[in-house]
Design a protein around this nucleic acid. Structure first.
Lengths: 343, 343
DNA sequence: TAATAGTGCCAAAACGTTTGGGCAAATACT
DNA sequence: AGTATTTGCCCAAACGTTTTGGCACTATTA
């Protein structure tokens, strides 16, 4: 009844064989001829001592630490990003891997220091994650191990990357509204210089076009977070020819839009349909009525990244990088209905 | 210009000394007499080769892996808990430690499996974290390493633990309202069987008592999340003698209360003051007006936990466990004012 | 000059694995 | 019976460190 501290030697001694043999048996090394009886003896000795291999020693010897580094700019304020970590962690666990989690807070020196700490521990690969979709300039240290970019891509496409399909998401959101018969669909847009900005704009425009609706720049208004969403929505809804539906860049902006609608006496979805983006549950499920919104596939991206990273670890760095775009599923709640006019 | 893959032997060769000497120099081993010149030579050789010690080898030899395990039930849906991880991670990084992050999702077998994976990697200690404050029954495997309980405690107090001061937080929240002159302070309470429930209730009652206000069970109504908060608030506010202020168990319930208030034509904070709990920023900063609320000291708890864990790692398990209660700071926004009657 | 003390360095074992190259004994062929 | 083959196992080196216990010099002292 070992306290889990038994070594290969202890097992060997108890089984009356050499360390080599124990190793061969426990690892099922192919091509090694060992009598069934001996195997049995070894296994039961190992079981009896509750033998567990020391991963440090294993890693030292076989150049495989079975651990990965998850590097992210800031895990802090962004709640949904947690699902990225979770997806990665679960996928890793299934393969016998563990994740080192480090955050740089955006500080380059700190990031380098953390990366070195990871490499010192001989991680087999790195997940370089951004908390919001962006183009990154990966630090030189990343060269030292297989890498996959998560929720980010680099300008030269050198590393594999996985991103949400922003355009497709925006497209589907607007499609959902257009299908209900909406013609005047406002867009509560973001003003940050991030890829999602132009990508979702594209989706918005293309979906409009697909439904034969002319793009009207007057129906696009920028802002940020709930206050920005509120202001932008007031702006759009205070007009004579106001939109019957709003597509919001984030759930938080949608939250602001709800407030504006309420103040103006517009009932959702009767007088105004709203679709958000992010499926930030505290907001989308907390609002009344529940907010129909596009979910970001954070969990799936985390999983994808690990799977891809494994391929690269196993195959060496000669395989060309892959770039994935994952779907943003529509989450139906109660904020969308046909426009009044169409009823 | 080594690719970071130089070993002690390479440095020794380049400096023309033995491995031993290099180790002594680079580790500043006290009591070792080595000529200043030699030291210089070794250091510059190490620098030139960009030598970095292999932590696997170090750990194997010196029984210190400089890594910790962060075990949590589920990192998933709960966004604020992220700050716990962050606090732990930053504190660990400052001490040269890295964090392995694992989540069990509440599954006992999976948890055991993950714990073993951590122990296999010879972690120096474990952070056993709960995503919401609760009493846990720690698995037997925790015995195998120093442990600190994070946002949790065990019934027998065997392990060190750190928790938010729920009672103090509730006390301060109600105090904030009472100080403004509110006499009828409703409590939108939770109905789950968790420690926070009775602890906050105690804070609520004590603060009332401190202000000479009689506790009125009629002013306490249970529910959960935004919908529950909405329902409970409707219940309380629809009366003739309705409360002038609401203390909400969570920000999400407060969100529901906002909706109820809006429907009833009550303006916040003019007609109704509200204090929440959690400081879940998407909600508290997203509501109009901003929600005054009690923040949970997740970040600080994370920090405290690794500090405590370090003590226990360094001191052996003979030092008695410590149990900390950390303050919940009040976050002022715009949802509190004096009651109308008092103006 | 010889004993003593101090200085500067190193060899080797150990941590717990994996793995290539064995070598005896048992079995199969001629 | 003698050779070839197979079976079953083990030795020892290696991974990259830390650490103990020296050993060979040089400098000091008597």
């Amino acid at each position: 009844m070992g306290a889990g501290t038994a070594s290969l030697r202890d097992v060997a001694e108890l089984a009356g064989v050499s360390i080599t043999t124990v190793s061969h048996v426990l690892n099922d090394v192919p091509g090694k001829r060992i009598a069934a009886k001996t195997r049995q003896r070894v296994r039961s000795a190992a079981a009896q001592l509750e033998y567990r291999p020391n991963k440090l020693a294993q890693g030292l010897r076989s150049q495989r630490s079975y651990s990965l580094g998850f590097v992210s700019d800031l895990v802090a304020t962004t709640p949904y990003a947690v699902r990225m970590v979770l997806g990665a962690q679960e996928a890793a666990a299934n393969l016998g891997y563990l994740l080192f989690l480090v955050t740089s807070g955006g500080d380059q020196d700190l990031e380098a220091q953390q990366l070195r700490a990871l490499l010192d521990r001989q991680v087999d690969g790195l997940l370089y994650a951004s908390m919001f979709h962006r183009v990154v300039e990966p630090p030189a240290l990343l060269e030292a191990a297989p890498v996959v970019l998560l929720n980010a891509r680099c300008a030269d496409g050198r590393y594999s990357s996985v991103l949400p399909d922003e355009t497709g998401g925006a497209w589907a959101a607007v499609e959902e509204l257009a299908r209900q018969g909406h013609k005047r669909i406002g867009f509560l847009h973001n003003e940050l210089d991030i890829p999602a900005r132009s990508l979702r704009m594209r989706g918005y425009q293309e979906a409009l076009a697909a439904h034969g609706i002319d793009f009207d720049p007057e129906l696009v208004w920028c802002g940020e977070d709930a206050p920005g969403g509120y202001a932008a929505a007031r702006e759009l809804l205070d007009r004579p020819e106001c939109p019957t539906a709003l597509f919001c860049f984030t759930d938080r902006m949608a939250m602001g839009a709800y407030q504006a609608a309420q103040e103006l006496g517009l009932r959702i979805p009767h007088d105004l349909s709203i679709v958000g983006f992010d499926d930030q549950e505290v907001v989308s499920a907390g609002l009344r009525p529940g907010l129909t919104t596009m979910a970001l596939p954070h969990y799936e991206m985390g999983r994808w990244a690990v799977t891809e990273l494994m391929k690269r670890i196993d195959a060496g760095s000669d395989v060309p990088p892959t770039h994935a775009l994952l779907d943003c599923p529509l989450v139906h709640r109660e904020s969308v209905a046909a426009p009044r006019e169409a009823r």
